[in-house]
């Protein structure tokens, strides 16, 4: 077990992602750009069981705009949106807490996941951030936040592939 804990980051990297970024793009909003993305959440049976037992599950959606470089280009824009999914046994509904802190109730898990699949960034990206004629990269990732799980569950969440609910980085080229 000790050895597993040491090899933990390596195992995490080899995460067979059950969450996928379907699509991401930068769209022109009224007063700036906004990132639109579509995330497909797939819960494992273990995760579903934990959710039904009242354990909240949280994902952090990372939105970044980077300039491609030799190794790591500079990150021009960075945003993190946290979505927390929890089951209300009394009402038999699923509650989703969005990045603004608002809760939305859903009768089905699919409806709740659908709501989460279209994250709404809070910040609008300034037009000045992106110079025309240059290439950029839009990077999106939804990372399952194991640290929001109850303490006894955390070590197993890091080691058990059934708890590997994060997506890998999704990179989308942008030409301005």
């Amino acid at each position: 077990m000790l050895l597993w804990l040491v090899l933990l980051p390596a195992i995490s990297c080899a995460d067979p992602s059950s969450t996928e970024i379907r699509h991401a793009e930068l769209i022109d909003h009224h007063d700036g750009y906004q990132i639109e993305t579509e995330i497909d959440y797939q819960l494992s049976a273990t995760a579903k069981e934990a959710l039904d037992k009242g354990i909240p599950l949280a994902w952090d959606v990372y939105l970044e705009i980077r300039r491609p470089g030799f190794l790591w280009g500079p990150t021009l824009y960075k945003d993190k949106l946290r979505y927390t999914l929890q089951y209300h046994a009394l009402l038999k509904q699923y509650a989703v807490k969005d990045p603004r802190g608002n809760s939305e109730m859903f009768l089905t898990l699919t409806a709740a996941l659908n709501f989460m699949s279209l994250p709404h960034p809070i910040r609008v990206i300034d037009y000045q951030l992106l110079e025309s004629g240059k290439r950029y990269q839009l990077a999106v990732r939804s990372k399952f936040n194991r640290e929001q799980l109850p303490v006894p569950l955390r070590p197993f969440a890091y080691l058990d592939s059934r708890w590997f609910l994060s997506s890998s980085w999704f990179l989308w080229p942008i030409q301005k």
Partner: peptide
């Protein structure tokens, strides 16, 4: 209703985490 739900959820969670708790405490002891 909230009170009942909270207690129920808490109990459910504890039931679910029973094995994890045992392993986790054993791990700490180890």
């Amino acid at each position: 209703a909230d009170s009942i739900e909270f207690a129920f959820i808490r109990y459910q969670e504890m039931t679910y985490l029973r094995d994890s708790l045992k392993t986790s405490f054993s791990l700490i002891l180890l």
